[in-house]
């Protein structure tokens, strides 16, 4: 069964008297353990699509089923619950709480999930170890490099064991070497059985994915399975 099934999604923004068609008619099915890259020129509607997939935003029209359940009819609270339990977001700008250390940043979703203090500490620390930040547990964002910040953000996305990871240009703010390291991390996460959707502008980043969806002017231009670039299947031993 597919995790995500959208049919004829449209998103129209009204700016003054003008209408902006961010998405015109988008249909997409994504299965469990898929690794999808979404590409397209700036303004083609990639972020808009991601926000809708992540239940952050609602489409103007069209159908969205998440794990077979229609999202359109959900209340605000139910959407918050889906975002909390089923979806892990990774943003281009990391979006960490500046004054909190890595552990607190990672345990944040668990607070909203109602996980008791001791357990969520433990899980947050484990998630940070998994992304290779064992010795950076109590560093604040401004005491971390860009790559490390994104790892904290990835740990935060993973800590709830979501059904799907949504990453909107996760390497957009990183240099190519650090970006590559993050991609290795995504690769490992995918190997463990996670489902990943990733937005990127870079072909070499998209090559990590098994499927590339290209958007243009709010429409899907192409959607194809691709040959994956070889990734050394080593344990993550990268610089932290």
């Amino acid at each position: 069964m597919n995790i995500i099934n959208i049919e004829h999604i449209a998103k129209i923004y009204k700016v003054g008297f003008e209408e902006v068609h961010a998405l015109r008619d988008v249909s997409l099915k994504i299965d469990k353990n898929e690794y999808v890259a979404i590409m397209g020129p700036s303004g083609s509607g990639k972020s808009t699509l991601m926000n809708i997939l992540g239940c952050l935003d609602t489409p103007t029209s069209g159908k969205y089923e998440f794990k077979g359940v229609s999202v359109s009819d959900m209340s605000d609270n139910e959407l918050a619950k889906i975002r909390n339990k089923e979806i892990g977001f990774v943003f281009q700008t990391f979006n960490l709480l500046a004054r909190s250390d890595a552990v607190h940043n990672v345990e944040l979703p668990l607070i909203y999930a109602g996980v008791p203090t001791a357990e969520r500490r433990e899980r947050a620390i484990q998630a940070l170890i998994d992304v290779g930040l064992k010795d950076r547990l109590h560093h604040k964002p401004n005491e971390l490099s860009g790559g490390q910040r994104q790892r904290v953000a990835i740990a935060r996305a993973l800590v709830t064991n979501p059904s799907i990871i949504l990453a909107d240009e996760p390497t957009g703010n990183l240099d190519s070497k650090t970006g590559e390291e993050i991609m290795v991390l995504f690769h490992e996460i995918h190997e463990k059985g996670n489902t990943i959707i990733l937005v990127t502008h870079e072909e070499y980043i998209a090559e990590h994915a098994a499927r590339i969806v290209r958007l243009k002017d709010g429409l899907i231009e192409s959607d194809e399975r691709v040959e994956r670039r070889y990734i050394p299947k080593t344990k993550n031993t990268l610089v932290t």
């Binding site: 975002r83 709480l97 944040l108 909203y112 999930a113």
Partner: peptide, 16 residues
Amino acid sequence: TKEIGLRKAIGAKRRT
């Protein structure tokens, strides 16, 4: 504002 957006994105309800 950004923090609030983030909190909502990772599952904070309105009442929270």
